[in-house]
Computed example of a mutant assay.
Amino acid sequence: MKHFADFKSYNDYLGLKKPLDADIDVGYYDPPNMLLKSEAITVDFYRISIKINVVNNATPDRRPITAVFFNSPNLILPIGWDVEPTYTGMYVQLSKKIIEENRYLFKTYLDYGQHEALYLQEDEVQEISAVFRLMVKYYESEKQNYNVLLSYVNVLISLVEAFYKRQFSTDPKAYNRIVTDFQQSLIDYYSKPVSHLPNVQYFADKLGLTANYLGDIIKHFTEKSALENIHDFVIKKAKDLLIENKKLNTTEVAYELGFEYPNYFSKFFKKQVNLTPREYRLQANGKN
């Protein structure tokens, strides 16, 4: 397995142009002069790769595809790639430093490489290509237009967001299973004694997904974030315990739900329900 710590070594390996900057690299693919077959690799930076009509010899279905692919630090491409020299495309490479310093510009798609590519329609290719031409223009002018270049990278990421929403909606059955598994995992979590509150990362690990990817799918199909779904479920459990287990006091209910501090449970419940747990119990008992 080969590991690449910087753009220059990776570009040399692939046969791409020398990067002009250590934190951001923008360019076009030139397949006839590039490495077309590779062993497994990892990179210590982020890549957004747009490939148009690429044929992958390593897959049984050799139909050309047009898609956006993502690479991120620690993501292993176990079989590398084996492609025909007939595709076109472009790429953006971003250092970990630039991501951290400009986190507000970047959304969650940079770790999607672990799950799925973004398959583009023809009009989407045209939009991305237009933005990319502007990125190249400002990249080649180097530091004097650095902020403009970053703004266009943000536009590219925003287009990716819109196109992913379209992809999620195109084949909902493929994603409904993830939503169902997430909801079942919530039920399973509270089917036994718990010692702490669950979080999004816990369920992402259970489902073999990244937290960002899980969160985006849950938000798309439920119109609430994964964390909001968890909070809704916890509140429902809290209400059930307060009504059905009258022997449990508020502190005991808090511990049953995994709250470490009962006072935090009371504040959390009041924020969600506009009543304290005690007020809710009294009101519910009064109605009954």
Rank of each mutant, 00 (worst) to 15 (best):
Phe4Asn: 01
Phe7Leu: 07
Lys8Gly: 05
Gly15Thr: 06
Leu20Gln: 12
Asp21Val: 04
Asp25Ala: 05
Tyr28His: 10
Asp30Tyr: 10
Asp30Leu: 09
Pro32Glu: 03
Leu36Gly: 02
Lys37Met: 09
Ala40Cys: 06
Ala40His: 07
Thr42Gly: 06
Tyr46Gly: 08
Tyr46Leu: 07
Ser49Met: 05
Lys51Val: 15
Ile52Asp: 08
Asn53Ala: 03
Asn53Pro: 04
Asn57Arg: 15
Ala58Met: 08
Pro60Trp: 01
Arg62Asn: 15
Arg62Val: 11
Arg62Trp: 09
Arg62Met: 13
Pro64Ile: 05
Ile65Gly: 08
Ala67Val: 15
Ser72Pro: 01
Ile76Ser: 07
Val83Cys: 08
Val83Pro: 11
Glu84Val: 01
Glu84Pro: 02
Thr86Trp: 00
Thr86Cys: 02
Tyr87Pro: 05
Tyr87Arg: 03
Thr88Cys: 11
Gly89Val: 01
Met90Arg: 08
Lys96Thr: 15
Glu100Asp: 15
Glu101Val: 02
Arg103Phe: 12
Tyr104Pro: 01
Phe106His: 02
Gly113Thr: 05
His115Pro: 06
His115Gln: 00
Glu116Met: 12
Ala117Asn: 15
Gln121Thr: 05
Val125Glu: 00
Ile128Ala: 03
Ile128His: 01
Ser129Glu: 07
Arg133Val: 12
Leu134Gly: 07
Tyr138Asn: 12
Ser141Tyr: 13
Glu142Ala: 14
Asn145Ser: 14
Tyr146Ser: 02
Val148Asn: 11
Val148Phe: 10
Tyr152Pro: 04
Val153Phe: 05
Glu161Leu: 04
Tyr164Val: 00
Arg166Glu: 14
Pro172His: 10
Lys173Ser: 14
Ala174Trp: 15
Asn176Trp: 13
Val179Gly: 09
Asp181Gln: 15
Phe182Tyr: 13
Gln184Val: 14
Leu186Arg: 08
Asp188Ile: 01
Tyr189Cys: 02
His196Met: 13
Tyr202Leu: 12
Phe203Asn: 04
Ala204Trp: 07
Lys206Leu: 04
Leu209Pro: 06
Asn212Asp: 14
Gly215Phe: 01
Ile217Met: 03
Lys219Cys: 03
Thr222Arg: 12
Ser225Lys: 09
Ala226Ile: 04
Ile235Thr: 03
Lys236Pro: 11
Lys236Arg: 13
Lys239Met: 11
Asp240Ser: 06
Leu242Cys: 02
Ile243Cys: 12
Asn245Gln: 07
Lys247Asn: 11
Ala254Lys: 02
Phe259Met: 04
Tyr261Gln: 09
Ser266Pro: 06
Lys271Met: 03
Gln272Asp: 02
Val273Arg: 08
Leu275Ala: 06
Thr276Leu: 06
Pro277Val: 03
Gln283Ser: 09
Asn288Cys: 07
